[in-house]
């Protein structure tokens, strides 16, 4: 039996009047890659952003139901949001390196959480960049601006930046959708490797990608979780007619 790391029970989210997540119940296991699939606007990003409370930034959001991380209620009033976000890292759809050097980008998180020691920082930066499979490409230009990197490199830098705070869970929102096939392959390999130490939840529009690298898949439709199960099972024998229609490309 796998350890559960995140579970939702009857989770609802409203953007004002718009009911964007409808009664979601899901159990996400530890050290696995969970893929979230579904047509545009079905609430994948919304669900992902609910997990690390990024939706707190948006006014008029209302959330009901239960969502727990290692048994802790994420939306409990006493929840420390910065601590939660430190444990649940996020990689965004559009690479968003800060306008500073490559080194400072990776060191941003550790510095924020109080690491000042230069030797320690050097260590973390190298380890994270290696972890994100970009060390060899940037080791000679750590002091150069991160904005000079290619899109694929920027995205891997963002992964390194997220790894540097040693998160427990990594959320990736269409992290490869802006990238070429080679960069995408690199990030997929990376994800496959990272799952030895991290729990990864990734949104993807790419069925092949979901089938290739994920262990579990969740299919969302119009704010509902239609089906959730082992990827292999789901792609060979979907339980729900709507899932079948979607993964065989009959709509969406």
């Amino acid at each position: 039996m796998e350890e559960l790391i995140l579970s939702a029970r009857g989770l609802n989210l409203y953007y004002g009047e718009n009911h964007a997540l409808k009664d979601i119940s899901i159990d996400i296991p530890e050290r696995r890659i969970t893929a979230l699939i579904g047509p545009s606007g079905c609430g994948k990003s919304t669900f992902l952003r609910t997990i690390n409370r990024m939706n707190d930034l948006i006014p008029n959001v209302k959330i009901t139901g239960s969502l727990t991380y290692r048994g802790q209620e994420i939306y409990a009033p006493e929840q420390d949001v910065t601590d939660l976000r430190k444990r649940i890292g996020m990689v965004f759809q559009k690479p968003n390196p800060f306008p500073m050097s490559i080194y400072d980008n990776v060191a941003y998180g550790p510095r924020t959480h109080g690491t000042r020691n230069k030797v320690k920082l050097d260590e973390i930066v190298e380890e994270s960049l290696r972890g994100a499979a970009i060390w060899d490409e940037v080791k000679d230009r750590l002091k150069k601006s991160a904005l000079g990197l290619s899109g694929g490199q920027q995205q891997r830098l963002c992964i390194a930046r997220a790894l540097a705070v040693k998160p427990d869970v990594l959320l990736m929102d269409e992290a490869t959708s802006a990238l070429d096939p080679i960069s995408t392959a690199k990030i997929e390999d990376l994800a496959a490797e990272l799952k030895n130490d991290y729990t990864i939840i990734m949104v993807t529009h790419n069925m092949q990608q979901a089938a290739r690298i994920s262990d579990n898949t969740a299919f969302f439709l119009l704010g509902e979780l239609v089906e959730f199960g082992e990827t292999e099972q789901m792609f060979s024998m979907p339980q729900d007619k709507r899932t079948e229609d979607y993964i065989t490309g009959r709509f969406g």
Binding site: M54, T82, K94, N96, R161
Partner: peptide, 13 residues
């Protein structure tokens, strides 16, 4: 860019 803000907050800043 909003992405910078989200990036920083997402790291637990």
């Amino acid at each position: 860019p909003q992405g910078y803000r989200e990036g920083a907050l997402g790291l637990g800043s």
